[in-house]
């Protein structure tokens, strides 16, 4: 354990404690939502005889080739419509999206909290992290 060498300014502020409580709820909720989505997909596969991959794609996947390409959902309306149509692939894609977006929401939540606290340095740091996190999306838009 590290031992303090001088009097530390270590006591967290009440707003820090509130922030930690909300963060915990956000993380747990997001993880449970993604679990529920994959589970629904599993149930649909069993009940409706659907599958997340065709036989050709599975053979290709297990042949070690790099020819498969999973196109990210482009049309939001179509993607949402897939949930209504109980398409299991949409549920599993939704779960993956929730998981990838969850850390970004976490940082966005921190950014909002730092802004409320008028902690400008950490607001800027959180904004920078959020910008770096969206690099993949930015690349996609540029290309």
């Amino acid at each position: 354990m590290s031992s303090p060498t001088s009097k530390p300014d270590s006591t967290p502020r009440p707003e820090d404690l509130r922030l930690e409580r909300w963060l915990s709820i956000l993380l747990r909720g997001g993880v449970n939502l993604s679990l529920l989505l994959v589970l629904t997909g599993f149930v649909l596969n069993y009940v409706k005889g659907q599958s997340w991959m065709g036989a050709t794609d599975m053979s290709e996947l297990m042949s070690g080739s790099l020819t498969l390409h999973s196109e990210p959902p482009r049309n939001l309306a179509e993607f949402v419509y897939g949930f209504g149509g109980l398409q299991s692939l949409n549920f599993v894609q939704g779960a993956i999206l929730v998981l990838i977006l969850l850390p970004a929401f976490r940082v966005a939540f921190l950014l909002g909290s730092f802004l409320r606290q008028r902690d400008w340095i950490f607001s800027m740091l959180a904004f920078l992290v959020l910008t770096f996190m969206s690099f993949g999306t930015i690349l996609r838009i540029v290309h």
Binding site: S34, L35, V38, L39, G41, F42, S51, W52, M53, D57, M58, L61, L68, H69, S70, E71, P72, L89, V92, Q93, A95, I96, L99, I100, L101, L102, P103, A104, R106, V107, V129, F132, M133, S134, F135, G136, T137, L139, R140
Partner: peptide, 28 residues
């Protein structure tokens, strides 16, 4: 770790290298 991996997963996802039928059951 969540933030780091989400950054790279975002790039893999947009590149089409995350196969839902593989990643979904594994994450679960």
């Amino acid at each position: 770790i969540g933030v780091t991996t989400a950054t790279s997963a975002g790039i893999y996802f947009m590149r089409g290298d995350i196969i839902p039928g593989l990643a979904g059951p594994i994450a679960f």
